[in-house]
């Protein structure tokens, strides 16, 4: 038999603590109050349509006033030779993966913040600097951030980046779903720039319908899997592909929200402050009852 892991030990400990406090562990409900709107937005990325032109990378930098090389330089596919991750200078990148059936035409995949419905970064942030918006976006607030970088560790997609080179006010950098542009009534920069509309922007529920319809009508073209529909409890950005997502460097994730377990432990321990108060009350009572014993011992000495 396997020896109990640290996780199962902690789980058991939590359950006992919570039971002692007369509470039920709420593993399923992650994060604070559920503010997800049924109309929340998302993007469906069709990797079978993407041509790897990297116009989205260019448009992203323009949209965020970052230093941007001229558009023509993006015709050079050389940067895609190596696997890249979004960093503090590029909030989205396109990677390529050789296609087994077509040596000349690799699969190209845009990577950016997935804007999880139950974000681990929001859960991990100890000061509430990252928040999930009703419209689906996961946003970072420069005024509240203390630079602990817990969000970077928590993210199952390894997305948040940090401006390590800046001594003063370094920022956490990640896709902000072009919230400023959308307030002006514009589309996210990458979605607007995509020449083939491999990125479809719209209400998430509608996108799931569209994706299902695509799979139903073209069963030969698509794998019957919408990545992000259920992974870590659902993400705002979702992907379609003609091959296994693991081959495209997507992490294989369960359907439970990432913060589910950790939050139930933390929230259980501190729920309504009853367990800590009970614990200190118990300790106080022990001290109180043993107080005179100690006095006697001191006198004897």
């Amino acid at each position: 038999m396997k020896s109990p892991s640290r996780r199962s030990f902690l789980k058991a400990g939590t359950a006992i603590t919570a039971a002692a406090a007369g509470l039920t562990p709420r593993v399923a409900q992650a994060g604070p109050a559920n503010i997800l709107s049924p109309d929340r937005l998302g993007v469906l990325v069709d990797t079978t349509v993407c041509i790897g032109c990297r116009n989205c990378e260019w448009a992203c930098k323009i949209a965020h006033d970052m230093p941007t090389p001229p558009l023509e330089t993006y015709e050079d596919a050389a940067p895609m030779q190596e696997m890249r991750r979004p960093d503090e200078t590029a909030l989205t990148v396109v990677n390529k993966y050789d296609h087994p059936a077509r040596p000349d035409l690799p699969t190209t995949v845009k990577v950016q913040c997935m804007h999880c419905d139950h974000p681990a970064c929001v859960s991990a942030c100890i000061v509430g600097a990252i928040s999930k918006q009703a419209d689906g976006a996961v946003l970072w607030d420069t005024d509240m951030c203390i630079g602990c970088r817990y969000c970077m560790v928590a993210c199952p997609f390894q997305i948040p980046a940090f401006e390590y080179h800046k001594a003063i006010q370094p920022r956490i950098m990640k896709c902000d779903f072009c919230t400023d542009r959308r307030k002006e009534g514009k589309l996210p920069g990458c979605v607007e720039a995509c020449p083939v509309e491999a990125l479809t922007f719209g209400p998430r529920e509608e996108l799931v319908r569209v994706a299902r319809d695509k799979i139903r009508r073209n069963p030969d073209r698509y794998l019957d899997h919408i990545y992000g529909e259920r992974e870590v409890g659902g993400t705002s950005w979702m992907y379609l592909a003609d091959r296994k997502f693991e081959e495209l460097a997507f992490p294989k994730l369960a359907q439970d929200p990432a913060p589910g377990v950790s939050e139930s432990i933390q929230h259980g321990i501190f729920a309504y402050f009853v367990p800590p108060v009970s614990l200190y009350a118990l300790l106080g009572a022990v001290m109180w009852t043993t107080r005179h014993k100690h006095d006697d011992e001191v006198e004897l000495l």
Binding site: L44, V49, L187, V191, E192, C194, P195, V196, E197, T200, F201, G202, E206, L207, V210, D213
Partner: peptide, 18 residues
């Protein structure tokens, strides 16, 4: 326009490019 109600088929720019 890319911002539209019916998302099931590509917009004009995408349709032509594809």
């Amino acid at each position: 326009s890319r911002a539209r109600g019916e998302l099931g088929k590509p917009d004009l720019k995408a349709a032509m490019h594809r």
